[in-house]
Write a protein that binds this DNA or RNA. Structure first.
Length: 297
DNA sequence: AATTCATTCAACCGCAAAGGA
DNA sequence: ATCCTTTGCGGTTGAATGAAT
């Protein structure tokens, strides 16, 4: 025999709460506090189990609950904390006043997770989807795109970005990124150990230095550090970035647009730096304000 | 206008942790 | 140390709603 469910008593109501039930619960708690949740329903005159009452109060009726859409700042905080804490919704909720763990969990599952997938980032590890990137690079190598590029049907930046990808070895390196975005710091300039790029599967979460830099409340920096090793055949870490690529990646928006064009306006865009770095909040503001990233919500 | 499909989110379930006897 | 009860958490479900056909 397994453990009986908490609400197996006959006649105990389940499902959506009525306004009358809400009122009873609010009035009781305001007058007496919740006390023992198990005892509460009887005392409050509710035909519900204690668990259901607790859930209704903490997720909906509590007076300090904040309602409405999540702000971009809240989005950033959730993304950041999730990259460190994983699916610890209650822990994440403690950093977002007025938001419940349930609300954050729902928001994650219905919006943020999809958004990360759309831009080619694994929502669990917060690393780029290397399988997608590998496929893209293979496709680019297989496809004869010379004609298209000569027609200049795309803008120069996109075409040059593609060209640079197709070069073997291509030339992208982290020092170039830091010159593109002024506030961005290469990991190598920080007092940290470089990530282990010999492993094909990146360790979950952010690089240690990025974590230690993250002061949750101020959200001073967001990490954008990825392992580069699986791309090693195509992108060499110790070579220099060409000017065209720098220009193409001058802003997050441009970077995304170019990536999207490279894919032929597909759903998945891939952004990759080939070494760890830390980006300032301003980067992410623009990043997630971009209609291409935001998508139809 | 009717039907189907997709999305959202409140609520539930089961498990684990915490706390008290 | 062990058992039992209560509380909290995370995953999942399904009704309601909106969008597409």
């Amino acid at each position: 025999m397994g453990r009986p469910p908490c609400c197996d008593e006959s006649g105990i109501k389940k499902g959506p709460w009525t306004p009358e039930e809400d009122q009873k619960l609010i009035q009781y708690i305001q007058k007496n506090g919740h006390g023992s949740w198990r005892a509460l329903p009887k005392l409050a005159g509710l035909n519900r189990c204690g668990k259901s009452c607790r859930l209704r109060w903490t997720n909906y009726l509590r007076p300090d609950i904040k309602r409405g859409k999540f702000s971009p700042e809240e989005e950033q905080t959730i993304l950041h904390l999730h990259s460190i804490l994983g699916n610890k919704w209650s822990a994440i909720a403690t950093h977002l006043p007025g938001r419940t763990d349930n609300e954050i969990k729902n928001f994650w599952n219905t919006h943020l997770k999809k958004k990360l997938i759309r831009i080619g980032v694994d929502p669990m590890t917060h690393h780029p989807r290397m399988d997608l990137l590998a496929t893209l690079t293979q496709l680019l190598c297989l496809a004869d795109l010379t004609g298209i590029m000569e027609l200049r049907a795309w803008d120069d930046h996109a075409a040059r970005f593609l060209q640079s990808l197709l070069q073997s070895p291509a030339t992208i390196n982290m020092s170039s990124f830091s010159s593109i975005i002024p506030e961005m710091k290469p990991m190598s300039s920080m007092n940290t150990q470089a990530p282990d790029t010999t492993t094909s599967v990146p360790s979950p979460g952010l690089f240690p230095a990025a974590i230690s830099n993250a002061e949750f409340y101020g959200v001073p920096e967001m990490s954008f550090g990825f392992h580069q090793q699986p791309l090693g055949n195509y992108i060499k870490q110790d070579s220099t970035c060409n000017d065209e690529l720098e220009a193409a990646m001058s802003t997050p928006s441009a970077l995304l647009r170019d990536a999207d064009r490279s894919l032929g306006n597909g759903d998945n865009c891939i952004i990759s730096s080939n070494a760890g770095c830390v980006l300032p909040p301003s980067f992410w503001s623009e990043f997630f304000d971009d209609p291409l990233v935001r998508g139809p919500i």
